[in-house]
């Protein structure tokens, strides 16, 4: 059992606050992805859990044991680094065996575990090589095998795929998901790549400026963003936002269209809709087409709606030309509303 509990963890570097009082619980065997743009504090949080950084305040618990005062080696964790950190002076075998030798396991057990994890990562033919003789993808496999061989309670991964080329990344992503699910470890995985996050995670914690904005399942994060930032960060192209003005209680005017919405004492809120959640038809938002990008499965249309940019994903067989006037009807159950002051969902 290795549940991770992060309680009120904050980190300040001089006058700069990298993390503001983070609270996050990660269930045993859960795959948690920390997602955010660079500088949002996701790596700092991971390094605090690893023990490579000390929190300015707060506690970290793993499996019911408080570990924030312990050195990394006593935390029951293994880590995979962005640049792999494969020891250049040791063979692949000795790299994978490194942690096992530190634990003073018998030679037989060391060999068993190295062979097993090497087979798991498909690098059994590389065991005699040095890191200088490996490609980036192979080094990545060695780094993952080295972490798995420790049979840790928790695996921490810091952007492990970001140095690989696109095709290899796709392949490794699927493989990692399988291997980690089978290993029954709790995983914290840091990335700035939303596709990676969506495809791997049981739960995504979206981070922004040192806060966790939302921690939920990938679909929940995509469908029901808890804040404007989540909607604008996740999804490619991102969510569309249009200012809404109150007409009556629970009724709002959005670009000339009157829509039912949340009851609020505010006069102005924001209407939001995903690009794929609009239909072109006879009624809806008045849009003037600016750019048409046929992408194969569908067509991305960038329009003007009330002087603001609005992106819509439409059927690829729709005959749309630049300058056309469209009516885009938002699907009622997909409309989201945000408070422009707090930026939170309403």
């Amino acid at each position: 059992m290795a549940e991770i509990a992060i309680k009120h963890v904050a980190k300040r570097f001089g006058g700069f606050t990298a993390l503001h009082s983070i609270d996050l619980t990660i269930a045993d065997q859960e795959f948690m992805v920390l997602l955010g743009a660079s500088g949002c504090g996701k790596t700092t949080l991971l390094r605090i859990v690893a023990g490579l950084e000390t929190p300015s305040q707060g506690e970290v618990w793993i499996g019911g044991r408080r570990i924030d005062h312990l050195p990394p080696r006593d935390r029951g964790i293994a880590m995979v680094f962005q640049n792999y950190a494969v020891f250049p002076h040791l063979t692949v075998f000795e790299n994978i065996a490194f942690g096992l030798r530190m634990k003073k396991l018998p030679q037989q057990e060391v060999e068993r575990r190295v062979t097993r994890t090497a087979e798991l990562m498909h690098i059994e033919q590389l065991l005699k090589r040095y890191s200088g003789q490996l490609s980036g993808g192979q080094r990545q496999r060695v780094a993952v095998a080295r972490a798995l061989a420790m049979e840790p309670d928790v695996i921490l991964m810091d952007e492990p795929l970001s140095n690989l080329d696109a095709l290899l990344r796709l392949e490794m992503r699927a493989e990692l998901k399988g291997v980690l699910a089978a290993s029954k470890t709790t995983t914290i995985y840091v990335t700035h790549d939303q596709v990676e996050a969506m495809s791997l995670a049981d739960r995504i914690a979206v981070m922004h400026q040192g806060h966790i904005v939302q921690a939920a399942s990938p679909v929940e994060v995509y469908r029901n963003p808890a804040a404007r930032f989540v909607g604008s960060f996740i999804g490619n192209p991102p969510m569309n936002f249009i200012p809404a003005t109150k007409t009556a209680n629970g009724s709002w005017t959005v670009a000339g269209l009157t829509l039912p919405g949340p009851k609020s004492d505010k006069h102005k809120i924001e209407f939001a809709i995903r690009p794929e959640d609009v239909d072109a038809g006879d009624e809806g938002l008045h849009a003037t087409v600016r750019v048409v990008e046929p992408l194969g499965p569908h067509t991305l249309v960038t329009c003007d709606v009330e002087g603001g940019l609005f992106r819509a994903i439409l059927e690829s067989n729709a005959a749309i030309a630049v300058g056309d006037h469209l009516r885009l009807a938002p699907k009622a159950d997909r409309i989201r509303w945000f408070d422009p002051e707090t930026t939170n969902a309403l």
Binding site: L52, P72, F87, F98, M102
Partner: peptide, 13 residues
């Protein structure tokens, strides 16, 4: 790289 040292720490050093 400092990561080599950090990796060694996480591996029990």
């Amino acid at each position: 790289p400092v990561e080599l040292e950090e990796a060694a720490w996480t591996l029990g050093c």
